[in-house]
Amino acid sequence: MALHNRVSAAELKVRLAAETFRRVTVSFYQYAKIEDPNAFRDELYQRLYALEVFGRIYVAHEGINAQISIPEHNYDAFRDTLYSYSFLNGIRLNIAVDDDGKSFWVLKIKVREKIVADGIEDPAFDMAVKGKYLDAKSFNELTDDPDTIVVDMRNHYEFEVGHFENAIEVPSDTFRDQLPMAVDMLKDQKDKNIVMYCTGGIRCEKASAYMLHNGFRNVFHLEGGIIEYTNKAKAQGLPLKFRGKNFVFDDRLGERITDEVIAQCHQCGKPCDTHTNCKNDGCHLLFIQCDECAAKYAGTCSDECHTVVQMSPEEQEQLRKGVEKGTMFFNKSKQRLRPRLGDR
């Protein structure tokens, strides 16, 4: 069999829409030593493809990072497949909080240098020396302590729509920049309790190890991130300390945690936390847009892009020729556009 997809995205989306069974959206990661990431990737692709798993998985010498959807009737077989690998046996699976099962439509497994880009080059850095896990109950208790500092290790556009009470934002556009910035921001607080969190746990786990590597003493990280915290807090009847929406890196672009809306439309300033990509294929800016502005601008981010989408497809294609662009997002804190580098 081919070890990659050969069907168009349009056809795959049609097939997804026609499915009559329910899918479950799941994320997981594991830092572990993988001797041959390419061989592991190929074997895993074949086994997950047979179970109709869709999603995005990154494999590297340092481990695995995945966001996927699984047919509900294949969930047990999928879990058994993962657990058949010794380093994944018993791994925590973060089940999405707000899920329609339509988050992915194709399976992609890619080999990368690292499962999360960190910019760390110090050979003495050791992921095995990491902060202490906090479950939902312990997180709530420790963050009630005035000597605790809560640090959000996600990007600006994630923090903007939702975050924990009293959390500190590390105002950088990439995780690799956030790590040294967090160390500098907290350099005079090395005796405080430092609690780090992110979406599913992968970034804050590495960040906790980096803080310990840089001399911090009491470092913790939220087990399973926001997703696991929310599921466990609701199941145990604990107070939810997260406010707003949790940004996710699939077609949903967010899952509702609380009804509170803490962000604003980037065009009119109305309370709104709905992320979207500009409908101009030459832009695709990630930004927050309310329903009224979506109708006014036809789903685009500006008057310029609104003008473009009213042109013929041929005219739009001509405009895009020779234009280099990366994925962009609106960074309100800096009042400008910046490339989004895809940190997950």
Rank of each mutant, 00 (worst) to 15 (best):
V150K: 01
V161I: 12
N155R: 02
M127F: 02
K114N: 04
F164S: 01
M127P: 00
S103F: 06
I149K: 04
A128Y: 06
F104W: 04
V106E: 11
P171Q: 06
I109S: 00
P171S: 01
L134W: 03
A136N: 08
I168W: 05
F139C: 04
E160R: 10
K102C: 08
L142H: 13
K110Y: 06
A167R: 02
E165V: 05
K110M: 08
F139M: 09
I95C: 03
V129F: 05
D173E: 12
N89T: 07
K130N: 00
F164T: 02
T148D: 13
S172K: 08
M153N: 06
I149L: 14
A117K: 08
D98P: 02
L107D: 00
Q178C: 15
K102T: 13
N155Q: 12
V106C: 10
P146G: 10
P123R: 13
K110T: 15
D118C: 15
G131I: 06
V106S: 14
E141D: 13
D147H: 13
G119R: 11
I91M: 10
D100V: 14
N94G: 09
K132G: 13
D135H: 09
V150W: 01
F159M: 12
D177V: 03
V111P: 13
F104D: 01
V150I: 13
A96I: 00
N89P: 14
L107K: 05
K102E: 06
G101T: 04
A124M: 04
G101N: 02
L179N: 05
G131T: 09
R176G: 02
P123F: 01
F164M: 06
A117C: 14
I120P: 00
W105Q: 04
T148E: 08
L88D: 08
K130I: 03
E113H: 13
D147C: 07
A124N: 12
N94I: 04
Y157W: 10
G162Q: 05
V161Y: 01
Y83S: 05
K130Q: 03
P180V: 01
E121R: 15
L142M: 11
D98A: 05
I120F: 02
G119C: 15
W105L: 03
F175R: 00
N166W: 05
W105Y: 03
L179A: 09
R92D: 12
E160N: 13
M153L: 14
E113L: 10
D135M: 05
V97Y: 01
R112L: 15
F139W: 14
E165M: 07
N89V: 03
D122Q: 12
P180Q: 09
S138F: 14
T174H: 08
A167T: 04
F139R: 07
H156C: 07
P123T: 08
I120G: 04
L179W: 09
D177A: 10
I109V: 06
H156A: 14
L88F: 07
D152N: 13
V170H: 00
G131N: 11
G101P: 00
